[in-house]
Simulated assay, not measured.
Amino acid sequence: MRSAITALLCSTGAALVVPLQPARPAQALDITLPRVSDGASVHLGNALAATTDRTLLCFGTHAADFNAIEYLQKVRFYLPRLRDAGVSRVACVLNADAAQCRMLAELLDVPDDVELFSDPTGEAGRKFGVSRGFRPDDDALSPYVKLFVVGIGLGPPWGTLLPVLRGYVGAPSGKRDWIEACMQQAQRAGRFPQPLELAADGSIAKNRFDDTPLASDWGVRPFELATMRLQNLIMQISRYGELGPKDPRCLTQLGGMVVVGAGGEPEYAWLDRGLCDLPDFEDVLGALS
């Protein structure tokens, strides 16, 4: 029985990593945004076209949203390996003003060499081709109703339910190192819940999910990823007044990511299909190898 469940979960996970294809980004991104660190105006399309090695550009959602937070968490963890893969420039557009971008970066300990761009209207993401959410042109329907529809797995877009479910059921062949790193950062910042036992120097002494019955040897144990997301959710709720979207269109707009090579030629592209539906960065690195 256990082997059958493991095989089913592995096949389910494999079905989740097929990215959608957005427009060619160097041509599509005819937009200039302010860089948060210094206020400089940067034309995104020109920046991608000027790439000589590799550039990663992710399109986060608004600053109090699961996807934006998880994008930054993954970028933070995988940054050294992305550098090793030849990605010399890493940037993220957030549907937030500059102050919100800075606050979220501080909350998540995002390294200074990750460039953040402020786009409170979400225009860059729409040019890239991200999903605008459920019935985006229906002005008679509350954005919060639209968000609720997608949040419970209905749509279009339809891609919320399986990624959320995986957070609860786990993944036998998944990778948990980035999840542990995110939970460690959250606990060191005083956020809850706290499933890790940290040593005096802040290192991980024990992960309580190591004691999970029948699944302690899984790559990602049941409820492990969900616990990390619960830490994020509590932070989102407590900071929503400061980090929530300025433009109601951004409440339901999803995100995406692209890695381009020389001349802005895309080597990997992804469009989110729902809440928590982000690319597996192991797949990203595999595509760049």
Rank of each mutant, 00 (worst) to 15 (best):
L154F: 05
V164M: 12
Y168P: 07
T160K: 01
V169W: 06
D137L: 06
S131V: 05
K175S: 14
D137I: 04
L165R: 00
T160R: 00
K146G: 06
P157D: 04
G167N: 14
Y144C: 13
A140F: 00
G153T: 01
G167W: 09
I152E: 14
Y168A: 15
G151H: 00
S173K: 15
P136C: 05
G155L: 13
L162S: 05
L162V: 11
S142C: 06
P136G: 05
F134E: 10
L165K: 09
R135F: 02
L161G: 08
V164S: 01
D137R: 12
F148A: 14
F148C: 07
G155D: 14
G153C: 05
S142I: 09
V150E: 14
V145M: 10
F134P: 07
P172V: 09
V150Q: 11
G133V: 02
Y168M: 10
G155K: 00
S131E: 06
S131C: 14
W158R: 11
G155F: 01
V169Q: 01
G155W: 01
K146S: 00
G167M: 06
V169T: 02
G155S: 13
D138C: 05
I152M: 08
Y168T: 12
V130W: 12
K127R: 10
V145G: 03
K127L: 15
K146Y: 11
L165Q: 04
W158G: 04
L161W: 10
R135M: 03
R166L: 14
S173E: 14
K175W: 04
P143H: 08
G129M: 09
P172S: 04
K146M: 08
D137T: 12
R132D: 12
R132S: 03
K175P: 07
G155P: 06
G159L: 01
P136S: 11
G153Q: 11
T160I: 02
V130Y: 10
W158A: 03
W158K: 07
F134Y: 10
